[in-house]
Amino acid sequence: MSDQTSVLLVEDDRNIVDLVQSNLLIRGYRVYVSRDGRDVMELVDDMQPDLALVDLMLPAADGFEVCRKIREKGSMGIIVLSARGAETDKVRALNLGADDYLTKPFGVDELLARINATLRRSRPPESAPDASEPPLQIGSVRIDFDAKSVTRAGERVKLTPTEYALLAELARGRGKVLSHSVLLHKVWGVGYATNTEYVRVYVGRLRAKLEEPGDPPLIVTEPRTGYRMLAD
């Protein structure tokens, strides 16, 4: 694997491909393109890109399905690019494993910012932190901050970078109510303050992976405010 960050672009419109590709290439990214959505999985397997940009309306595939399949493969970042701005589409894409959702039309700065934010989460920190952080046990869930790994009842739980980032934020502030905007700012970055559905969907994904029916809840919803992780 080279040092170059690689991006897989799944998009059918010729101009948008050219636009995104030009902007990424000039900034030093490596870019792979799937024009109809058919060869996405081959490209993911062969090129192991760090990030995928996926259009939802594709001539030969369903964009939602593409997201689901990529997420099944691993923890690479997924950003959806779509002309469909409806809340339901956004939630659906996030539920299927997308890390972010960008509605067309978008500016290049916005796109680059989101790509960076997503990559930041999925990348190991450039340099190892000076002081290592002790692992944390909450109920049957154990978070190893140094290894960025999570176990439940001793078993490894696979989390995407975004899921891990959210869990880590909640864990560090455990016992306290963390508002939507704080979580959005810390996990996704600047400019996401209104995307409360992101937090909602991702808390849902964490609960599905970490809470068992019958267990006391790990993450408590504070209505209209945010979320709180149990102190213990």
Binding site: D13, N15, I16, L19, T103, K104, P105, F106, G107, V108
Partner: peptide
């Protein structure tokens, strides 16, 4: 509508 607009705005 959004596709050409995206290209225009992006370019």
């Amino acid at each position: 509508l959004r596709t050409p607009l995206t290209a225009i705005r992006g370019y």
